[in-house]
């Protein structure tokens, strides 16, 4: 260790070690640069990163923390509090199934079982071909025309198990 570094004392701001890919890193930095002046910027930044990458990589936490000059614990605490944010890349399509009461009254429980069985995955998982990730959601605001499902950002109503299969087939055929 050189004399110079030994004298440096406690570093005020170091570049955090991270294993982000270049794209991930550039995206996180660009989103931070764009939004960090906003009032209460953390949620908009996390949304920005997830919108761009599809997820918020674990190693984005120290980078965002250093950009906002807050602790990693604060960023991690926020990221892990909200159900919407994901740390792993999603499948090519994200399917949210409504589990809430109004949908339950018209068959959501059976639909959920069908979805898990036909896709062979549980909630918060992705099919092995990387096509579909399945997530629960608690009301999509379509409670008079349930059961409700959101495929990517599109709401679908009156989704029977057969209709669910159709929607999945359509999604798969899109890419």
């Amino acid at each position: 260790m050189s004399r110079k570094s030994a004298l440096r004392g406690i570093p005020i701001k170091t570049e955090p070690a991270c294993s982000l890919t270049k794209t991930e890193r550039d995206t996180v930095l660009a989103v931070c640069a764009r939004l960090k002046a906003a009032a209460g910027p953390l949620l908009p930044i996390l949304h920005g990163v997830q919108a761009a990458l599809g997820y918020v990589p674990k190693d984005a936490v120290p980078l965002i923390a250093s950009e906002l000059n807050v602790t990693r614990a604060e960023v991690h605490g926020v990221l892990s509090f909200y159900h919407y944010f994901r740390a792993e890349p999603p499948g090519r399509h994200v399917v949210h199934i409504c589990r809430a009461e109004a949908c339950q009254s018209v068959g959501a429980v059976a639909l959920e079982a069908h979805a898990k069985k036909s896709l062979g995955i549980d909630f918060h998982q992705t099919t092995s071909d990387g096509a579909v990730s399945l997530e629960p959601v608690y009301c999509l605001g379509n409670c008079s025309l349930g059961p409700s499902v959101m495929v990517d950002q599109r709401l679908q109503g009156k989704v029977s198990p057969e209709r669910f299969d159709e929607l999945i087939a359509q999604a798969r055929s899109r890419s």
Partner: peptide, 19 residues
């Protein structure tokens, strides 16, 4: 970001502040 509790007003304000 998908948290029912953020409908409660003080929780909502925390969330708006980025917490």
């Amino acid at each position: 970001a998908g948290a029912y509790i953020c409908g409660e007003e003080t929780s909502l304000l925390e969330s708006l502040e980025g917490k």
